[in-house]
């Protein structure tokens, strides 16, 4: 009886539990954005005309390009999981890099988009913004808040994938221990899912 053996002292892994935890976290993210979407629906319903007029200020072409960029990045991260499961470490790392590349492209396009809104003084607190009708001010406030929060998620997701690249190269993430890559993928797809709803609701009010 001299030895006290702790039942879980080893390096135990539980892929199901780690995936379950990630999904539970994603649900809290859905509720975070979901609350904002409810705010959007209510105010759009109360200010139909204003939301319509304000949405003409948004660039549909840039929005569409960004949608395609995000969908492509979603595919590359999903493929990087397939590649690692098939044992192709190099391809997996390259596809993860590709995802980060597309994340940067998305952010650069977003930068130019926001930049042109700043030039027109449409950011909350700016001159032109303060003179808009209340409904249009609401539209731009929600636009900046929701796309801004989404862009923050892109940055976090990109850093997350960066960490996974490092661990994949160190062979701490492998075909058999793929949870971390899978979870970063799940997070990335969630970011894509949110954009799937943001895009038609802000850019495509016609």
């Amino acid at each position: 009886m001299a030895h006290l053996v702790l039942p879980n002292s080893g390096h135990n892994r539980d892929p199901e539990a780690s995936k379950m935890g990630m999904w539970l976290f994603l649900f809290t993210e859905i509720l975070l954005f979901g609350g904002l979407f409810i705010v959007y629906f209510v105010y759009r319903n109360l200010n139909t005309e204003a939301f319509l007029n304000a949405s003409f200020e948004l660039d549909v072409t840039m929005g569409t390009i960004n949608t395609i960029v995000l969908l492509t990045s979603s595919m590359t991260i999903a493929m990087s999981i397939t590649a690692l499961q098939k044992g192709n470490l190099k391809l997996s790392v390259n596809l993860q890099w590709a995802t980060i590349f597309f994340a940067l492209v998305f952010l650069v396009i977003k930068y130019f988009e926001w930049g042109s809104k700043f030039e027109h003084g449409l950011f909350p607190g700016m001159d032109h913004y303060s003179h808009l009708p209340a409904g249009e001010r609401l539209f731009f406030f929600l636009y900046f808040f929701m796309t801004g929060l989404h862009a923050l998620h892109i940055i976090i997701g990109g850093i997350f994938i960066g960490v996974v690249i490092k661990k994949t190269k160190q062979r701490k993430v492998t075909g058999e221990r793929i949870s971390l890559l899978e979870n970063s993928g799940l997070y990335w797809h969630l970011v894509d899912l949110i954009w799937i709803y943001l895009f038609p609701l802000f850019y495509l009010i016609n």
Partner: peptide, 19 residues
């Protein structure tokens, strides 16, 4: 229609990309 199409896309992403 926009919401229905978006939801179809969301289901595709969730079922295939998110496994």
């Amino acid at each position: 229609t926009a919401l229905i199409i978006a939801t179809t896309k969301a289901i595709l992403v969730a079922y295939y990309f998110m496994h």
